[in-house]
Design a protein around this nucleic acid. Structure first.
Lengths: 155, 155
DNA sequence: ATTAATGCAAATTGTTTGCACGGTC
DNA sequence: GACCGTGCAAACAATTTGCATTAAT
């Protein structure tokens, strides 16, 4: 049994929620996915192995996963939310390419430290933060075309 | 004539768009507003002086203002967008209180500098960025209640 | 047996669009 | 007079919810 599965079961137990085949299937899907995906991506993928799972269950389960701390919900711009597994990884922020939609993760401890000092100066208690940089990645640097049908994919 | 009005007229002219009473009214509303407001806030306020303005026109005009660079559209979390006038002000980022919805602006040149160095290291060309810190402000620090009906209001 | 979870479809919410009419250049 | 902008209502898209049914405990 994978570590994340144990954690999820522990979270469910602690809250008197139940483990179901649907939840397990979605959990596997999420931890298999590399990158940032939408609820719909997970719906499609999960249905390959569990054909009748509903969109509602996807949303409900992703919420649970976020609450349990296993998954991170990220708003990368646009209207839809993206999800990525978080368990076992360090915190990171995102560079988002407006050309191809690719997402690069970065970590910068000095920025984190400065953030904390900003919070201190306002006596603000930070709970979470989101730092996104939009622009053009290496590959898309010379494509002058504006963003096509935009949607951050894998990576 | 205010500076921002001149700028807006210049932008409209340059793009063969027309100045209308509605656009002028919304422009005034936006530059009078202190803080971060939703499209609906502007609809309500604008209607006080211009009763039949439509929601569609608010959205269309806010878009124009954003394109002209006079106004900043910010996603502070949740589903709706917030707008604040930008003209004549320096770039800033946001601390967002999950207790009362208040928004504190901050500027931290060192963070900006570090951002640029992160971009350089990925050969990423930054176009814009969004840095939000969520937590509890000074006043809400000891209220343990979870966020009620959440909506960042005035400053 | 109890009570939570599911699938479905309908409801919600913020925003966008098509279109006929009115106003600006 | 050409054609852009408006209001209105319908259209949209992502997400949420009500409910009767099914399943985990």
């Amino acid at each position: 049994m994978e570590d994340y599965e144990a954690k999820f079961r522990a979270y469910l137990d602690a809250n008197r929620y139940r483990m179901t085949p649907e939840r397990l299937a979605i959990l596997e899907e999420v931890f298999q996915a590399k990158g940032h995906f939408t609820a719909d991506d997970f719906l499609i993928h999960t249905r390959q192995h569990h054909p009748k799972v509903s969109r509602a269950t996807i949303y409900r389960t992703l919420d649970l996963l976020v609450q349990s701390g296993l998954v991170d919900k990220v708003e990368l711009g646009g209207n839809r939310a993206f999800y990525e597994y978080f368990h076992g990884r360090q915190h990171h922020d995102h560079l988002i390419c407006l050309g191809c939609g690719s997402v690069i993760e970065f970590t910068e401890p000095e920025i984190e430290a400065l953030q904390e000092s900003v919070c201190r100066s306002f006596n603000f208690r930070m709970q979470s933060h989101s730092h996104k940089i939009f622009g053009r990645c290496d590959r898309c640097q010379h494509d002058s075309e504006p963003p096509p049908s935009w949607s951050p994919g894998h990576e």
